[in-house]
Nucleic acid binder design. Structure first.
Length: 217
DNA sequence: ACATTAAGTGATT
DNA sequence: AATCACTTAATGT
C-alpha cells in the first residue's frame, strides 16, 4: 500500500472506523477516490449525473436547491461522517442531481464509485446499516428544512441559519455579507439587514461589515 | 479624492 | 416580507 493510500486509510478509519468493519474501511481506502475540495468549489451541480457517493472526511458541504429561474435556497449541511442520501437514490436510479453541492470550507471526501455502492449492500452489513441510517437522518433533515421554510418566520429562519452556519465552520464569527445570506435564504438583502438589526438589538449577534458574531449559540 | 461595495432606513405594496 | 429609492459608512485605488 502506497503512502497516499495509507493516509486515506487513516482518514477513513478515523471517521468511519467505528461504523464499518475493518475489511470495508480497507476497501474504501483502496477503491475510493480521495479528493480535496477548496472552499467555494462546486462538487456537484443541478443536472449533472452522479459519478459516485461522497463520504465526508473533513470540512462541510452545503446542499442547495435551485429552480429553473436560478432562485436558490439552502437545504442542509453535510459534515464529517455524513454522506449525501440524494446521491444514493440518484446513483441507484441513474438519475441526475436535483441539487448543488458546494464546499462550505476546505473539505476532504472519498468518492465511492456507483458499482461498489450496490455490491457492498449485500457484502457488508455495516454498509447497509449506514446507508439506511443516512437515508433516515437525511429524511429528518428534509422535514426540518421544510418546517423552516414553511412555518418559521424569516427572523427565526435567519437565526437558525446563522447558528447552523457557525456550527459547520466551528466558529461563531462568520465572514459574509447580508447579500450572501439573502441568497441562501432566498430573500432580499434589505430584509436580512433589517432582521439582522433586530437580532443585534436583541443581543443574539454582534454585526460588522463583512463579519458577524453569533453570541447565543 | 474618488469609486465601489456593504449596510441602514422610510415609504409603499 | 418584498421592493424601491435613497442615505450613510467602510474600503480599495
Amino acid at each position: 500500500m502506497g503512502a497516499m493510500n495509507e493516509k486515506v486509510y487513516q482518514l477513513v478509519d478515523e471517521n468511519y472506523g467505528f461504523v464499518f468493519e475493518p475489511e470495508l474501511v480497507e476497501e474504501i481506502a483502496r477503491i475510493g477516490n480521495f479528493q480535496r475540495i477548496k472552499a467555494g468549489m462546486v462538487l456537484m451541480d443541478v443536472g449533472e449525473a452522479f459519478v459516485g457517493m461522497p463520504l465526508l472526511l473533513s470540512g462541510a458541504l452545503k446542499i442547495i436547491r435551485e429552480n429553473h429561474d436560478g432562485d436558490e435556497i439552502l437545504l442542509y449541511y453535510l459534515e464529517r461522517g455524513d454522506t449525501c442520501a440524494m446521491s444514493f437514490s440518484c446513483c441507484m436510479g441513474d438519475k441526475k442531481s436535483k441539487v448543488r453541492a458546494v464546499a462550505e470550507e476546505d473539505s476532504e471526501i472519498v468518492m465511492i464509485p456507483v458499482e461498489y455502492m450496490d455490491q457492498w449492500l449485500s457484502k457488508y452489513g455495516s454498509w447497509k446499516s449506514y446507508v439506511f441510517e443516512s437515508l433516515q437522518v437525511r429524511m429528518d433533515e428534509f422535514i426540518e428544512s421544510i418546517d423552516s421554510i414553511a412555518f418559521l418566520r424569516m427572523d427565526e429562519r435567519l437565526l437558525k441559519y446563522l447558528r447552523d452556519k457557525a456550527r459547520v465552520v466551528s466558529d461563531p464569527v462568520l465572514h459574509m455579507t447580508h447579500q450572501e445570506i439573502a441568497y441562501d435564504l432566498n430573500t432580499s438583502r434589505v430584509v436580512v439587514s433589517r432582521l439582522m438589526k433586530k437580532l443585534e438589538n436583541a443581543g443574539y449577534v454582534k454585526a460588522g461589515r463583512n463579519q458577524l458574531e453569533v453570541l447565543k449559540l
